[in-house]
Design a binder for these strands. Structure first.
Ligand code: FES
Ligand code: FES
Lengths: 142, 142
DNA sequence: AATAAATACGATTAAAATTGTCGTATTTAA
DNA sequence: TTAAATACGACAATTTTAATCGTATTTATT
């Protein structure tokens, strides 16, 4: 990590992207799991920038977490079984690999051999991943 | 978080600051737990910007994790019992409160009442904090 | 006493990452 | 045909992180 030009992952990169995604999923689930909800409705209700939220829903649509219906009266509905998606998978789909430092995913660190904390950090990462593997999206959205 | 003007905490904010701190601690511990090590030595060995590393060591000195000795032939040595400092405490001392989203530490979110994911996120945070409470600095540096 | 090598630290700049917006295309119900 | 919704790449603004600068202080050595 010391010499990577940019970093892709911190220990766990939870950003508004994930936050907005969770808010949207929970809203859809609480409201009407089978009916459609527009990005606009959620954006207004939670004061989230609409275009940004739409993009996130679109990404979840590509990931088959939600289903999109176009046209007026269109919107999104939950497609996946949220109890079967671990938070680890969810975070990784939205944000990329979960882990503390670049060097475990990007191997362009020029001092990867000199580094003295690779192994211990690896252990922390394993713990983190294990923890989020045990929790499902359902636990957050229900 | 939606409406905070800036964010202080992500789920876990592990940055180069923490990385450099861990590298330095481990180096000191492996080399000579009682002798002094200069910031320069560590900076050169791991190719870390010297001034930046020095600042981090200075902060750890204020936090009584290391002890600083000034003057030529000065440097730092580990002061605390690393087995008694949890990673949670360590991360929080260096980076501030550990937690997923601002709203639990900063209460200036204007939609804190409308928000539908506060409680579940709180649960995730608790899990995270618990996990890092159980690990000590020693486990990373030895 | 002078020097040099180290820590101490606030201020500033540079770089990177995140967040948000714009413009345009496509779909489809009314 | 129109309007309201999704789709999405490109761009701009903001925020955060990383690094540097400048100066002061301490102290071993000469
Ligand atoms: S700095 Fe690259 S492996 Fe640790
Ligand atoms: S958006 Fe502020 S509490 Fe959730």
């Amino acid at each position: 990590m010391v010499n990577s030009l940019y970093r892709e992952n911190e220990l766990l990169k939870i950003t508004r992207k994930v936050e907005y995604a969770l808010i949207a999923l929970r809203h859809m689930q609480a409201k009407d799991p089978k009916g459609l909800t527009s990005a606009k409705e959620i954006a207004i209700h939670y004061r989230i920038p609409k275009q940004l939220l739409a993009k996130i829903l679109q990404q979840m649509s590509r990931d088959n977490i939600v289903e999109a219906v176009q046209g007026p009266a269109g919107g999104y509905r939950i497609r996946a079984n949220l109890g079967e998606i671990s938070l680890k998978d969810f975070f990784e789909r939205l944000e990329g690999p979960l882990g503390m430092m670049d060097c475990f995913f990007e191997s362009d660190c020029i001092q990867i051999n000199a580094c003295n904390i690779r192994v211990p950090i690896q252990r922390i990462n394993d713990n983190m991943r294990e923890m989020f593997s045990k929790m499902t999206l359902m636990e957050v959205t229900q």
